[in-house]
Nucleic acid binder design. Structure first.
Lengths: 137, 137
DNA sequence: GTAACTGCAAAATATTTGCATCCTT
DNA sequence: AAGGATGCAAATATTTTGCAGTTAC
């Protein structure tokens, strides 16, 4: 496990550091998406600034992606293999549980195509479904 | 026009004030959704705090709704009639133009249903499509 | 006249930047 | 050894809160 994290960093030409391993580990263990604040609470002895910079780096490398939310919170989740640098294909649906407030990537549920009005050209779609998750029923 | 704004406020049991009329006017004239910063720029002589409070009030009354975005910006748009207090039915698709960066409500395009994994119960869905809008092609 | 709204000041929170030091390669 | 990553301090930006003065009804 620790080894696969190391691999992921190397594959993205990033040096293997404590902070980065710790944050990636959190993402692997997390039940859903993580906000900056979540990481700050769980990652011990890590500077707030380091978290900001690490998340930014990971996103630029296409290792994580942000999840659109209607409140002003920013959440991140791990990308699947398809994501390349600067080229996100996170075309799966995100689910936010109203009960436990977890944000979950439904990797197997594709965002469906919609018919847009004349003249609109779609490039990428995001979909977030709010409801009750399987564990909270 | 000025009169319909007045009506809208009264219908929601809000007193008719300058700030509120000005902000609603901006929403009616706006090509798409507005962020706090947009309003601050366009509304003259209005305190930042008043804008925060007005937007919050409008949202609570179901007059406007927030639009989920992947970056950390919060944007608002006018709700259609169906929206009731604390009960948003803004089940239309939002479009963000990569060129002019406008956020547009596609009121006529419904968010399609998706088949969720076993155990997940949907309550509300949001969809944001990024691309090029009709005016920027 | 009274309750609600606004502006100002200030607090609380979140994010970004600069720089010296430390760590990875 | 060199370049990148981190921590700390501080600058900026964003949002919230309290309170006194003003306005709508």
């Amino acid at each position: 496990m620790n080894e696969s994290i190391r691999e992921l960093l190397k594959k993205n030409q990033l040096s293997v550091t404590d902070s980065r391993m710790q944050i990636l580990d959190l993402f692997y263990k997390a039940p859903g998406a993580l906000a900056h604040a979540d990481i700050e609470k769980k990652a011990h002895k890590m500077d707030r600034v380091t978290i900001y910079r690490t998340l930014q780096t990971f996103e630029e490398k296409g290792m994580i992606h942000t999840i659109p939310t209607a409140d002003n919170s920013v959440k991140y989740a791990l990308c699947k293999e398809q994501c390349a640098e600067g080229h996100h294909h996170d075309n799966h649906v995100h689910f936010v549980c109203e009960h436990c407030h977890k944000t979950i990537c439904l990797d197997d549920v594709h965002v469906p195509d919609v018919k847009l009005p004349r003249g609109f050209m779609p490039l990428q779609s995001n979909m977030v479904v709010h409801g009750i998750c399987d564990e909270c029923r």
